[in-house]
């Protein structure tokens, strides 16, 4: 092996770590808040990407998972006074359990039906957050006290960053480990074809449950970090718009790509902040960006960068990279028609 390559790797990582640690030196309170949001959305984006990008399950429940995680954190920390190292894992685990239950419909229905039912679930959760006043304090929301570790209080955005950054990096590391394992490869196979997966001895139901549970775990942890970042958990935060942000992070960043989730989170957290002053114009520009990127880069920014050789290809399984077919494919949902398979290539 090339000696310089061995020397280089820790150097790059060390430099990167130093740069990340030094970020608060360059920011003021507000920009640091935005940076913190980026770390939160990286976790959320990775969570949805596991389910949507890797496992191919088109579910819309991630804003709800985030909300559940945020509320659990808020309740545990401010009402029971529990420390963050209990709250964050608790938020993740409870949400993961709920997420696993959400996998039940995914076993019976495909594509848009799953999207609709999870979407309905997400909206239902917002309604629960508003109407279960005894627990959630309704539309007034719950305040979250600043986390502390052995007397050190992460008060203020700059200090909080040093809690968020390790969490975010840990989650990223966890995701990359899981996705490169047997289970991660199973996700991809299920996405490509459930029949092939079954033929290869993969328990499809169990794998889908794991994908949902895992995605929800990331959603819950992301929600917990979000709660600490914003300091006040409100039901309206977890509605349709939140969902749009999550999907945009995954699709624009790049489906089935961890780098994509990071790029997407960076973009979708910072861009709207720049456009903050023009309400309607912000909407128009945001919408236009969504449409244009999705049309011209259907594989997302990470996909485009990979194509131009700027980003390395993320390989889980060799040969799984899909190319767009220039073929007259009949509609995707042709499973309803009993005859006619479409154009076949001989």
């Amino acid at each position: 092996m090339d000696r310089t390559a061995i020397m280089k790797k820790p150097l790059i990582y060390g430099g990167l770590a130093a740069a990340l640690l030094a970020v608060p030196l360059l920011t003021n309170g507000y920009t640091q808040y935005v940076v913190n949001l980026v770390t939160v959305y990286v976790v959320l984006g990775v969570g949805l990407n596991i389910l949507l990008g890797y496992a191919g399950q088109f579910a819309f429940a991630n804003a709800a998972f985030m909300g559940i995680g945020a509320y659990i954190t808020a309740i545990l920390s401010s009402q029971l006074g529990l420390p963050f190292w209990v709250c964050i894992p608790a938020a993740g685990v409870v949400t993961a359990l709920i997420g696993t239950a959400c996998a039940v419909p995914a076993m019976r229905m495909a594509s848009i039906y799953l999207a609709l039912v999870t979407f309905a679930f997400a909206e239902l959760m917002v309604w629960v957050f508003i109407n279960w006043k005894g627990v959630t304090n309704g539309s007034n929301g719950i305040g979250v006290s600043a986390p502390d570790l052995f007397g050190y209080v992460f008060r203020g955005d700059q200090r909080l960053y040093y809690l968020l950054l390790p969490c975010c990096l840990t989650m990223l590391w966890l995701a990359s480990r899981i996705l490169k394992s047997y289970i991660g490869r199973s996700f991809v196979i299920i996405r490509e074809s459930e029949i092939v997966a079954r033929c290869n001895g993969i328990d499809v139901s169990r794998t889908k449950m794991i994908a949902f549970g895992l995605s929800a775990f990331f959603g819950g942890v992301g929600g917990a970090l979000f709660a600490y970042t914003v300091g006040l958990v409100l039901p309206q935060s977890f509605g349709l718009f939140q969902l749009v942000i999550h999907i945009a992070i995954v699709v624009l960043g790049g489906m089935a790509s961890l780098a994509g989730a990071i790029i997407g989170a960076l973009l979708l957290t910072t861009l709207p902040e720049f456009l903050r002053d023009f309400q309607s114009l912000q909407e128009v520009m945001f919408g236009t960006a969504l449409v244009i990127v999705a049309i011209f880069m259907p594989r997302g920014i990470a996909g485009a960068l990979t194509r131009f050789g700027i980003l390395p290809r993320e390989m889980l399984v060799r040969g799984i990279v899909r190319e767009r077919r220039p073929v007259a494919t009949p509609g995707r949902d042709q499973d309803l028609e009993p005859i006619g398979v479409g154009v076949t290539h001989d």
Partner: peptide, 19 residues
């Protein structure tokens, strides 16, 4: 393309039109 991409384009239009 993927359903998610199509959904995102539709949502993009929805945001534009509302704006």
């Amino acid at each position: 393309e993927h359903h998610a991409t199509l959904a995102l384009v539709a949502i993009g239009f929805s945001v534009i039109i509302k704006g």
